[in-house]
Design a protein around this nucleic acid. Structure first.
Lengths: 127, 127
DNA sequence: CCTTGCCTTGACATCGGGGGAAAGGTTTAG
DNA sequence: CTAAACCTTTCCCCCGATGTCAAGGCAAGG
């Protein structure tokens, strides 16, 4: 399988695949003419990458999962490093949710005050 | 008040203040030697900018609030455009929270499965 | 005069995940 | 022979809010 086919099967671009390679997430054998050659294991790796990227992981976070898959595990999640990343990401997401919740309350409060302020102004003048 | 003093009083950098100016959020009188000169109203504007940036607003979102302050209102929140931005931002934050909540559940599920998988492996082998 | 400490504009670097184009090699089909 | 459809590397572009020089003007004190 060449890079174009892998890209199409994984639903991404050749550009992205070469980018993953330069960042150590993907490796390719080379045919005689220098073309990158992939197999089905690489397809699974790319799918894992795309899934985790979609969740909001960065490429550095993804590396342990890829290494886990390449070590022969059927899932990229089961290795200790992956579990550690999962725990950290959950904590990050929790923190993010809490931060956004606070922002939301603050915005809601400002909105309420702003509307009340306008209404009191409007009740005394023509608005 | 010159730019350095304004920066210090507002808790930011001169670089940031010049940047706000180029983006239409701040304006300055010039003294004879070309130095930017600010007053207390500008300090209030900068504080508003910093607050909203801290909440996660972009400079474009902030412009209505600054205009509202400069129009003489005591709060930047009370003008219609500001209220519209507040509503939109609240909706965005709500969407963000919901998205993160879903990601969290997904991660939690993967973590659970990964741990169970490891435990079953470990129970049959030395681990 | 010289240093110190303000200020000015302008331009490049940063981070992440690529997009897009240039300039060229290879293989296959017609 | 040539066109098309692959592939290769390399380099510049994007976003947003700054940091960080560079190179210079201006003011004040010893």
């Amino acid at each position: 399988m060449l890079i174009g086919e892998l890209a199409e099967r994984a639903g991404t671009s050749t550009r992205a695949l070469r980018y993953y390679e330069t960042h150590g997430l993907l490796s390719a054998a080379r045919s005689a003419n220098g073309y990158r050659v992939y197999d089905d294991a690489d397809l699974r790796v790319v799918r894992e990458i795309r899934t985790l990227l979609g969740i909001g992981f960065g490429l550095d976070d993804i590396r342990p999962f890829v290494d886990c898959l390449r070590a022969g595990h059927s899932s990229g999640d089961v290795c200790p490093d992956s579990v550690a990343v999962l725990r950290r990401k959950i904590a990050e997401v929790d923190a993010g949710i809490e931060r956004m919740r606070q922002v939301r309350e603050r915005l809601h409060g400002q909105l309420t005050v702003a509307i009340e302020s306008r209404e009191s102004t409007c009740s005394s003048r023509t608005c």
